[in-house]
Design a protein around this nucleic acid. Structure first.
Length: 853
RNA sequence: GCCGCCGUAGCUCAGUGGUAGAGCGCAUCCUUGGUAAGGCUGAGGUCGGCAGUUCAAUCCUGCCCGGCGGCACCA
């Protein structure tokens, strides 16, 4: 009996797959296609357990679908532009390009060691000039279509990274990478008109039925579509001639209006402040506070009465005061509102504070119009409109429509849809990114380059010793000539947000060597991605941008699909216990020794026996030092054990806690599986297989197949563990020919069932028992539904709901026959002594319950 | 405040309207030429709490408690 040795076995099979070119994706019209993609990694230089989990999950799907006859595309690439390379350049004086490609080489080797079924012939990095040059080409196409534009705008400026951030990259007022408090700056910026697609991006979420509900809700909230009315108030007396435009989603409550409010940054507020020092002081106060989201949320509502009045749109004799209020946002709607305190909590808080009228106009069902009052809580529910002239008696929706119609007829405004989503600012003041292919000419202004001038590549000698944009500092690179007039011009030195790089890479994988950015025929075959896998942290960043770019490129005729990812799976994190010394320093798991006494665990520092505090299990991170290096695990237990463990211990969407005991358990399983295959004799004869094991095998195939289909990988693995115990209970040693035959059938199935999880072990086992070819070429095992059911059922017998015994009956036995067996059973009869049977409930093949008194 | 997920053995998690499961850990024993290893056996659970529906609830329904995540002055 030879011990299983992954160090020899695993590289051997990886070489065999490579030699056979097993994972090359081939567009085969005779077979259905399946595109599996995991979010591509940033090449930090080292693989972490999160990668191991992410790519193992995708590999299970890819191998499973291949075995089921699909033509599978499972590619890999590198999200390779970005700040870490520039930081490394600044800190260590290395060249960012060389640094990045060295990291890629290291990580590629590690990923290959994982034994992933990837078509490496399609690999590319976003920093390859062959890739970003194509990105420049479609950037120009979108510029042509008016989807890319330049504007001066107030932007989020990260003072640490010295670059602009998109709204999506600002979290709680801080840069998502640097954590620095973001400042506001006015800059000339490139932007993409994602807002042109806001409606489609919202509507099409409904078609993404294989996305997690959670992600769809997050995107819907982020886009924030609302339908309402934009209209103008006319001033009574003093005030700008053009009036004051407001936006509302509640035109039905117009007769409950109490005042009109504008944001502190609103032009009207600024105009008032120019003449009124008190107003100026108030605005200054509004600007002072409100640095972080948390402060904005808790800030008290304050306001300033400008003294201006506007006329109510439906009653020229009714005048409303105009206030400046801190709770109104300039960058949403028109920065001005009409307030109906009875039916909006913010307006109500404000009205109560400043003694403004509160007039209810929506009457909840069951309330009386004469007595209904609003106290400290605004009524926002449905009801009948009252106190509202021509709207009286209508429900909320009808009144909205009627009010909008009246305003439109008066020429004061129109029904409008407003979004929270802003255009996507894509300029970054960084050198290590995709250069924006335009020049600035003194005579012609901003001039896009012709495609013949592409790619616009980086210079090789960028100098990174200082912060800021090294591309802009370069002595010669930016100086060029204008393609229009031939005069002197300077290149744009901003580069594109790296989220642009990742917004179309999945389409490039269809044919990464194509002349055009996207090989349409290839993309038509492979897209959309059937199963996309990655972390939930990209729910509104990458996943929204990729959807937008897909739609924009589809409208430009470069793609046929309008959604890039038909299925999305968001996997959980890999966590580990945290350990701290008495002085609070974090300690790495490998420095800690754990002692188990009964049910309590004690930790000490291996080096000196100092006690260590065991903390919660948290996401593996450098800062808390609770990481486990994949390569060290591979070295001790092999790749298969590591893959198996990250998938066995939790459902894929949940966090998985890494423990040394857990991986040892997986390692033992690997060995026990091998023992079982190794114990099977080479010649098993041709006997009729023993039926019990045979049934168990078919049941197993059914269960594991369904578990993989529904992303319950841990559950499938649990079934495999159980089945191995069953095989051990039916050993080859001393087995009858019938049992040996059943074992052979079981093992042939088992090797294929474990292949998606532990592919190297599967090959070794398959070869050991004489499987034909390699497992990667074998069909997924089928099962006979009739054999997944037991021939004889053990039925528990309950008396008054409590288990009192069991009987055996043939599968599918009729209730009357079962009842007879039960009543003939002496043990049951004893339990029923002195009782009258009122009812016997027989659930076919499941259970019997006797109700007796 | 709103929405979602979760609560089952000491730990991490499966599971089902009808006999409560796995891995790890723990205990006993065996093996001592797989040996910083292997194997056998076992203990351990009012399935978060309280009601309801049902012949029968860990599972369905409602309320409550606890944990996690997302959104939130968006008119």
């Amino acid at each position: 009996m030879a011990r299983y040795n992954p160090k020899e076995t695993e590289p051997k099979w990886r070489q065999a797959w490579a030699d056979a070119d097993s994972f090359r994706a081939v567009a085969d019209p005779a077979r259905p296609k399946y595109y599996v993609l995991e979010m591509f990694p940033y090449p930090s230089g080292r693989l972490h357990m999160g990668h191991v989990r992410n790519y193992s999950l995708g590999d299970v799907i890819a191998r499973f679908k291949r075995a089921r006859g699909f033509s599978v595309l499972h590619p890999m690439g590198w999200d390779a532009f970005g700040l870490p390379a520039e930081n490394a350049a600044m800190e260590r004086g290395v060249d960012p390009k060389a640094w990045t490609y060295e990291n890629i080489a290291r990580m590629r080797a590690e990923l290959k060691e994982l034994g992933l079924s990837i078509d490496w012939s399609r690999e590319f990095a976003t920093c390859d000039v062959e890739y970003y040059g194509k990105q420049q080409a479609w950037f120009l196409d979108l510029y042509e279509r008016g989807l890319v534009y330049r504007k001066e705008s107030v932007v989020n400026w990260d003072p640490v990274d010295q670059t602009v951030l998109a709204n999506e990259q600002v979290v709680d007022g801080r840069g998502w990478r640097s954590g620095a408090v973001v400042e506001k700056r006015k800059l000339n910026q490139w932007a993409m008109r994602i807002t042109d697609y806001a409606d489609q991006l919202t509507d099409d979420l409904a078609t993404l039925d294989r996305w997690p509900e959670k992600v769809r809700v997050m995107q819907e909230n982020w886009i924030g579509r609302s339908k309402g009315l934009k209209f103008r108030f006319h001033f009574a007396g003093e005030g700008p001639a053009e009036g004051l435009e407001v936006y509302t989603t509640r035109p039905d409550t117009l007769f409950g209006a109490s005042f009109v409010g504008v944001a502190a940054d609103h032009p009207l507020a600024e105009a008032v402040a120019a003449k009124d020092p008190k107003a100026a002081a108030f605005i200054a106060e509004c600007r002072k506070g409100a640095a972080t989201e948390a402060e904005i949320e808790t800030a008290e509502k304050i306001g300033y009465d400008t003294g201006l009045k506007v006329k109510h749109p439906f009653d020229p004799n009714w005048e409303l005061p105009v206030w400046i209020a801190n709770f109104i946002l300039m960058d949403y709607g028109t920065g001005a509102i009409f307030a109906c305190p009875a039916h909006d909590q913010r307006d109500l808080d404000f009205a109560r504070k400043y003694g403004l009228p509160v007039k209810p106009v929506v009457l909840p069902a069951g309330e009386d119009a004469a007595s209904f009052e609003v106290g400290d809580e605004a009524y926002v529910g449905p009801g009948a409109i009252f106190n509202s002239d021509f709207l009286d008696g209508m429900d909320v929706e009808a009144a909205k429509a009627a009010a909008i119609a009246r305003i439109e007829a008066q020429g004061d405004g129109d029904g409008a849809t407003v979004f929270r989503l802003r255009d996507w600012g894509v300029s970054r003041q960084r050198a290590w990114g995709c250069p924006i292919p335009v020049v600035h000419c003194e005579k012609c202004g901003v001039v896009p380059l012709p495609k013949s001038a592409l790619p616009v590549a980086h210079p090789d000698d960028i100098e990174f010793s200082k912060a800021g944009n090294a591309l802009d500092r370069h002595p010669t690179w930016k100086h060029t000539t204008c393609p229009t007039c031939g005069g002197p011009a300077t290149r744009e030195t901003d580069t594109l947000d790296t989220f642009v790089d990742s917004s179309w890479y999945f389409a490039r994988f269809a044919n990464p060597h194509a002349e055009e950015p996207i090989d349409k025929a290839a993309a038509d075959y492979w897209l959309p991605v059937d199963q996309y896998i990655g972390g939930i942290e990209h729910a509104v960043l990458h996943l929204l941008y990729a959807r937008f770019v897909t739609k924009a490129l589809a409208d430009d005729g470069q793609l046929s699909v309008r959604e890039p990812f038909a299925g999305l799976f968001t996997q959980g994190m890999v966590t580990h216990e945290t350990y701290r010394r008495q002085n609070g320093e974090w300690v790495e798991p490998k420095e800690v020794e754990i002692e188990v006494v009964g049910n309590t665990r004690r930790a000490t520092l291996g080096a000196n026996g100092e006690p260590v505090t065991i903390g919660d299990s948290e996401k593996m991170s450098k800062s808390k030092r609770n990481t486990v290096a994949p390569e060290e695990i591979f070295d001790v237990y092999g790749v298969d054990a590591a893959r198996l463990f990250v998938m066995s211990d939790s459902p894929p969407e949940r966090d998985v806690q890494w423990t040394s005991g857990g991986v040892q358990g997986a390692w033992r399983f690997v060995n026990r599986v091998w023992d079982e295959f190794d114990s099977q004799p080479a010649e098993v004869g041709a006997a009729e297989p023993e039926p019990e094991l045979r049934r168990a095998t078919h049941k197993l195939v059914k269960q594991v197949t369904e578990a993989i289909d529904t992303f319950r990988f841990n559950s499938g693995i649990a079934r495999l563990y159980e089945f191995l115990n069953l095989l051990k209970a039916n050993p080859a040693k001393g087995a009858s020919p019938a049992l040996l035959a059943a074992r052979q059938e079981a093992l042939l199935a088992f090797a294929r069932l474990i292949a998606p999880f532990t592919p190297h072990l599967a090959e070794e086992c398959w070869a050991r028992i004489g499987g034909r070819g390699m497992v990667v070429e074998a069909e997924w095992p089928g099962f006979d539904p009739a054999l997944t059911e037991d021939a004889v059922k053990v039925l528990p017998v309950q008396v008054n709901g409590k288990r009192r015994g069991e009987i055996t009956a043939p599968a599918g036995a009729e209730p009357a026959d079962v009842e007879k067996i039960v009543l003939d059973d002496p043990e049951i009869a004893r339990r029923l002594e002195g009782l009258t049977i009122r009812k016997v409930i027989v659930v076919k093949d499941r259970i019997v319950n006797i109700v007796a008194a």
